[in-house]
Design a protein around this nucleic acid. Structure first.
Length: 325
DNA sequence: AACCGAATCAACCGCGTTGTT
DNA sequence: TAACAACGCGGTTGATTCGGT
């Protein structure tokens, strides 16, 4: 299989040929890795460990740059890499962490075990940004965050709940025994369509004392420390029972109103927690509460709401999963 | 069945940071 | 402290796959 070498690369290679007497430089392989190369790299790292990638590439007999070897190992060959679609929990976490850190893919990936920065970056660009584009919304805008908060986050939470109600005990999603709303889990119904008033944020959130800055951890909830999040397999559940959460349309707000989530390790990590409230309330652009209320009056149109709701399965890869209707 | 455009994701690049001599 | 090498990150590209016609 051949790989088209871009002009810039051709220039680089030419430069190397001119500047280097090392004939091997011109034999460097590019493009997709072969099984043989993967095997060589894996076996070498198994015996000698990773690091010093340029040396490693030579010693392992790979006609690749050290950079290429490193990338292949970290993004594909490393044993703890997870394959397959992102779970709703992971998607939720990406949304949340991105709202906090922006395009700090590596930093985000550190908190999603088994997922690489490249994978998360691709996910964001192909799924999230695509939808933002189709809606003519800036993917980093407040408006988009609002859409995420009011449409997608509740749906993801609902999906997680759905998973938890059907999952075997080996499935590390929501532990229904810990869920304060077993009835909600069993009886919740997917709203057929969000009402036009649905996206209005709860007053509880608007009135909350969450700060708008990115300092995190100093939110209305005392249990949160984003910076303390370390590797985990997330299990997310509501922090406290609410006295009443109506079913149907109100599940949007019900999910939003649930300010805090525990993240519990299923692999022996420290139990930690994080707060989705920043995503529910935080404005990464420093918008004031009055701005938010202004936005409330200028919310997503019914058409857009229709679109958002109907397209969520595509966006978050729910297609093929059991329908809750 | 063939074509074509869109979507996906592995792999690459440039550049800033960190470590070493 | 300067020079160089190695590393790591984020942005981008392009080959492959998918889905529609």
């Amino acid at each position: 299989m051949t790989h088209t070498v871009r002009d810039a690369n051709a220039m680089t290679t030419l430069g190397k040929r001119e500047c280097s007497s090392n004939e091997e430089d011109s034999e460097l392989r590019r493009g997709p890795w072969t099984l043989e190369e993967d095997t060589l790299l894996t076996h070498y790292i198994a015996r000698h460990g990773e690091g010093r990638w340029n040396l490693l590439a030579k010693c392992a007999g790979l006609k690749r740059t050290g950079k290429s070897c490193r990338l292949r190992w970290l993004n594909y060959l490393k044993p703890d890499i997870k394959r397959g679609n992102l779970t709703p929990q992971e998607q939720l976490l990406i949304l949340e962490l991105h709202s906090k850190w922006g395009n700090r893919w590596s930093k985000i990936a550190q908190h999603i075990p088994g997922r690489t920065d490249n994978e998360i970056k691709n996910y964001w660009r192909t799924r999230v940004q695509k939808q933002a584009r189709q809606l003519n919304i800036e993917s980093n805008s407040k408006r988009f965050l609002d859409a995420v908060r009011c449409f997608w986050t509740p749906r993801l939470l609902q999906k997680m709940e759905q998973d938890s109600s059907t999952a075997s005990t080996s499935n590390p999603v929501i532990d229904s025994k810990l869920h304060p709303y077993p009835a909600l889990l069993q009886n919740s119904t997917l709203p057929s369509m969000p009402s036009s008033t649905c996206p209005q944020p709860s007053k509880q959130i608007c009135d909350s004392s969450y700060s708008n800055d990115n300092s995190s951890s100093t939110t209305g909830s005392s249990i949160v420390n984003f910076d303390s999040i370390s590797s985990f397999h997330p299990q997310i559940f509501f922090e406290q029972p609410r006295s009443h959460i109506p079913l149907g349309h109100s599940i949007h707000n019900a999910a939003i109103q649930s300010e805090s989530y525990y993240v519990e390790s299923s692999a022996g990590y420290d139990t930690e927690c994080f707060n989705l409230a920043p995503m529910s309330t935080m404005d990464t652009h420093g918008t004031s509460q009055s701005d938010w209320q202004l936005a409330e009056n200028n919310w997503i149109s019914d058409d857009m709401a229709d679109y958002l709701w109907n397209s969520m399965d595509d966006i978050w890869q729910f297609r093929g999963l059991p329908d809750m209707h």
